[in-house]
Amino acid sequence: MRFSFIELDARGRAFALLDGGTGGELCGPFERIESPWLEPQDVVPQSDDGVVVVRGKLDGRSAVVIGIEQAFQGGGIGEVSGMKLATALSLAARDSRAGVPTAAVLLLETGGVRLQEANLGLATVAEVCSALLELRALQPVVGVIAGMLGCFGGMSIAAGLCTELIMTREGRLGLDGPQVIESEAGVAEFDASDHTMIWSIDGGTQRTRTGLADVLVPDDVAAIRSAVIEAVGCGVPAEHRSQRIGELGALLAAVDPADPPKPGDLAAVWGRG
């Protein structure tokens, strides 16, 4: 029997991935470390600022799972939520250097920088990327994009830095969300109401087929947990996707930007069909 992962909130997801009874939350809701920038703008804060950090064991190994709550402010990254992400990654790196290898799992459901905290959100996303890279050299950092929101904006760059990226068919990954592109570039460039087109570009199936994500899993707690355990078990690869500059050049060279392939043909064009 399947248990939906997508139906869980960020906290439920984080605990569900870890070995039963091993998870402990850090800077949880009762610490009440809220964003200081929302109330002055008449926005109701959330006691955990929409990021859940749970430390525990993953198949017996030390791990930290960091979940972004998509229901709060569209998973937007503000000062507090971003700093929770960056600090957890840095502490995992510190432990890994000190002889306690600690992998990280990121549950990425986010529209990117929270615009109510604009410049501090942007700054913390840069700090998240830096901390992620620091840990990634020592231990795997596994990204999971299960849905339904997807992973966009600055945090999609963090997704691109992950050791391994796991998606479901319901997950989406892209730099700019459909509405943002449509309003910047016009409906002829990107029609945010054309769901078939959007999923054919951003969807988990397409991103794994084209090699921009690694594993496609069904929306099932056990399946996602197994995929995460397997990804962590593979350890740190000799070279990460985001280090392969030459490969990026080759992928771009294979496509004529004035006459790009249909999304369904891209995997074949890239020799990944």
Binding site: D9, F30, V44, Q46, S47, A71, F72
Partner: peptide, 18 residues
């Protein structure tokens, strides 16, 4: 004991009980 449920997201609310 204390309890925490919900999220301050559209149409919902977060409750902290101490």
């Amino acid at each position: 004991r204390r309890a925490h449920v919900g999220v301050a997201g559209s149409g919902d609310l977060e409750v902290l009980m101490t």
